[in-house]
Design a protein around this nucleic acid. Structure first.
Length: 503
DNA sequence: ATAGGGTTAG
């Protein structure tokens, strides 16, 4: 008996080399604490590797007598949530309710979180309603997922309102996670500068932003090309005694090409070790600016640094080689030899390169090849095809829809652009006007294509009308890269004015 | 003694 119990303990530590492991596993997941005949069973969750494991363990738990505690059930439920299997988690919860398994406020909070992560914040609030009706006391852990859910559902204004309500009505004490959730939500919604200001505001309160909050703002600043602000913020957080970690640095390395090496220098100085993500970011940066030799060298040096190049490293490098017009095939063939698997991005990158080089036949062959390997083409694949192929573009769109991939605004931009180039402005206009009925909103590119074409045809009045419509639609302000849009607007205006002048 | 959080490729 003692031997077996020691065996169980070993299993809990994950010692699979122990010969008793096999005895343990044949006895399922029931295991006990130090007291041999303790009535409370303990459950080993570490053996769950995929959803099915969790589901069968759950069924086992339902049969156990005495019944496992609410804590055990809640842990199991959350394991499934951490695997991002929210539907499964909700099904498990349903079954728990039907079989009178114990639930408490924690369990309900997991359910609220599930709905929020499924983009159903409305259900999240509905659950909060029954949570309150059952007499549970909500706290900051109940509210944080709901804030996140509102942001995920693009309800930025509502999220801010809800957050302010929590503060003014003192419904809970906001903590670091709350602050982070709001700041991250704003960043991801494209309101980087609002998030930046809010961060500064919270610095002055008792609830200080932590490394998570600084990192998400730095990441957004980098993505919006506000590199100087990002560098400033990095200095500021260090000054305030908040140590940037590997993710903070990786965000920076990813967001800048010229200064990337300096950032790595700072990392090394501060004893933060670059990892695979750091290297991938550098490879991507080098590839994008055409320094493919440097990119290749870095990839080759990774094993020596104890890092394994991933398919992401190769995808970036392949992209760099394609852009330079260099032979990317050799790299492409290297992937399986290194024990890595192609992703849809690998194929899309290659297709982009092949079509860009005018090698349509090779591109089509690769397109067929990827399907033969059961790799599903996605939106980007089809857009690449549309852009690259000389065949009738509308036929390609029809194939795409037949396969159940919905065209997006980029698809339509390509089509509209194609028709404009062919002088078929009428068809282009029909497509353009059909966008709202497809649930799509023209973006700055769409307007730019149509307005430019109208100008060329001398239809200046119509072009002006569209320009006004564009301004009114606010699409120029929607994008996070507002300053780029300003340039684009100026360009379009100049084009219009030139035409008026010529006319 | 169980609930909430950040970075990589086309």
């Amino acid at each position: 008996m003692a031997l077996i119990f020691r065996g169980f303990a070993a299993k809990n530590r994950g010692t699979f080399s122990n010969p008793l492991y096999f005895i343990c596993s044949s006895l399922h997941n029931l295991t006990h604490k130090k007291r041999p005949f303790s009535p409370k069973p303990r459950i080993d969750f570490s053996c769950i590797h995929e959803v099915d494991d969790a589901v069968s363990l759950f069924r086992e738990m339902l049969r156990m007598r005495p019944q496992p505690s609410v804590v055990q059930f809640t842990i199991l439920l959350n394991v499934v949530v951490k695997m991002k299997q929210y539907r499964v988690a909700l099904n498990i919860f349903d079954e728990m309710r039907q079989s009178d398994a114990p639930v408490d406020g924690y369990t309900w909070t997991v359910v609220i979180n599930c709905y929020c992560l499924l983009n159903r914040v409305d259900f999240g609030f509905a659950i909060l309603g029954s949570f309150l009706k059952r007499g549970y006391e909500p706290n900051v852990c109940t509210f944080n997922p709901l804030i996140k859910g509102l942001f995920l559902d693009d309800k930025v204004v509502e999220a801010e309102k809800f957050f302010k309500k929590l503060l003014t009505l003192k419904l809970c004490e906001p903590n670091e996670v709350t602050i982070f959730t709001v700041i991250n939500g704003l960043c991801k919604a494209g309101h980087t500068l609002t998030a930046y200001d809010l961060l500064g505001l919270f610095e002055k309160t008792s609830c200080k932003p932590n490394v998570f909050s600084y990192t998400t703002v730095i990441d957004s600043l980098c993505k919006d090309r506000m590199v100087d602000n990002a560098l400033q913020l990095l200095a500021k957080m260090i000054d305030k005694g908040i140590s940037p970690d590997i993710i903070t640095y990786n965000s920076m390395v990813q967001g800048m090409v010229k200064e990337a090496e300096d950032i790595v220098e700072i990392m090394v100085q501060r004893s933060v070790a670059p990892n695979t993500v750091t290297c991938n970011a550098l490879i991507d940066g080098y590839s994008l600016v055409g320094q493919i030799d440097k990119a290749r060298k870095l990839l080759d040096s990774m094993p020596g640094r104890g890092l394994k190049p991933s398919i992401i490293s190769y995808n970036s490098l392949i992209n760099g080689f394609c852009k330079k017009g260099k032979e990317a095939w050799r790299l492409f063939l290297e992937v399986p030899r290194k024990g890595l698997e192609y992703t849809v991005v690998t194929y899309n990158t290659m297709l982009h390169g092949l079509f860009g080089a005018g090698r349509c036949a090779d591109g089509l062959k690769l397109f067929q090849d990827m399907q033969a390997r059961h790799m599903f083409p996605n939106l980007v694949t089809y857009n690449t095809l549309l852009n690259g192929l000389c065949m009738n573009k509308m036929i390609a769109k029809a194939i795409m829809e037949e396969k159940g991939v919905n065209p997006d605004i980029i698809t339509y931009n390509i089509l509209i652009h194609g028709f404009c180039k062919d002088g078929k402005l009428e068809i282009a206009t029909v497509l353009f006007k059909s966008l709202p009925s497809k649930g799509l909103q023209p973006n700055i590119t769409t307007y730019s294509i149509i307005i430019g074409s109208l100008c060329q045809e001398g239809l200046v009045k119509e072009a002006k009308c569209l320009l006004v419509e564009m301004e009114r639609s606010g699409c120029a302000l929607d994008s996070a890269k507002t300053f780029l849009d300003e340039n684009e607007k100026t360009r379009i205006l100049t084009q219009c004015n030139c035409c008026i002048y010529v006319a």
